[in-house]
Simulated assay, not measured.
Amino acid sequence: MAVKHAVPRAAPLYALAAIRVFNGATGLLAPELLIRRLDPGRAPQSPAAVYAFRLFGIRTVLLGLDLLTHYGERLREDVHEGILIHASDTATAAMLGLSGRLPPRTAILTTLISATNTALAVTAGLPPRDCAKGRRT
């Protein structure tokens, strides 16, 4: 019975894990690339920005790997914690943009990325649907 209920939530869960691992690895291994893409007008790059991307990069890789390696109650906890983490990231990016501390393009892009992650985490955390009847169980 558990297999029947794993499928509806698997797609957003694996999508979120892939995004976390990819973005985290990029932040960890190539922070300069992300900084150039998010803030193309800035030169030279701030050492603090490189540090922050690496710091959040390893965090994000580990969060992604948790989704791929944990099961049962531990996985449910990871998903629910992810909602808070990504919602916080979304709010931070939006506030930095609204306050003018990030360029508009960068603020919009980072807010959209974080909001997408938040939506995937929320969707992954929803109770599974009964596939036969189309209702939540």
Rank of each mutant, 00 (worst) to 15 (best):
K4H: 13
A132K: 15
K4G: 03
I85A: 06
L68D: 06
A25L: 15
A49W: 08
A48R: 12
T60V: 04
C131N: 09
Q45K: 06
A10M: 12
T106K: 07
H70I: 02
R20F: 04
V122C: 05
S114Q: 05
V50P: 02
R101L: 15
T116Y: 05
T26N: 09
A87E: 07
R9A: 03
F22E: 10
L109P: 00
A94P: 02
N23H: 09
P40S: 06
P8D: 04
S46D: 10
L65E: 04
H80K: 14
L120S: 03
V21S: 04
P31H: 04
L96G: 01
F53L: 09
T137A: 11
T69S: 11
F56K: 04
R74N: 12
P128T: 06
I35M: 01
T123E: 10
N23F: 12
H80S: 12
M95V: 09
D39I: 07
V7E: 10
N117G: 14
L96T: 00
R101E: 11
P103C: 05
D89H: 05
D39A: 12
D130T: 12
T110H: 01
R74H: 13
V7A: 13
V21Y: 04
R42I: 13
L13N: 00
T60G: 02
P104N: 11
R9P: 00
L34C: 11
A30I: 04
L34E: 08
G64T: 05
P31A: 08
A121S: 12
L98M: 14
R9S: 03
L65Y: 05
E32L: 09
L102Q: 09
R76Y: 05
A10C: 04
L65H: 03
D89M: 03
G64E: 06
L67I: 09
G41F: 08
T137L: 10
H70E: 15
A43E: 13
Y51W: 13
L68A: 14
A43Q: 13
A121I: 07
T123P: 01
G41Y: 05
R59P: 00
L63C: 08
L33F: 14
D130V: 14
L29R: 06
D39H: 07
F22H: 10
L63V: 09
P47F: 09
T118S: 11
Y71T: 15
P47S: 11
D78R: 08
R9W: 00
P12A: 10
L84T: 14
T90C: 10
A30P: 02
R36Y: 01
G125L: 07
S114Y: 01
N117Q: 14
G125T: 07
L65G: 04
P8S: 03
E73K: 11
Y71E: 15
A124S: 13
A107R: 08
A25D: 01
A124N: 06
L75K: 11
L16A: 08
E77N: 13
P103L: 08
L126N: 09
G97Y: 01
L34Q: 12
V7P: 00
V7F: 12
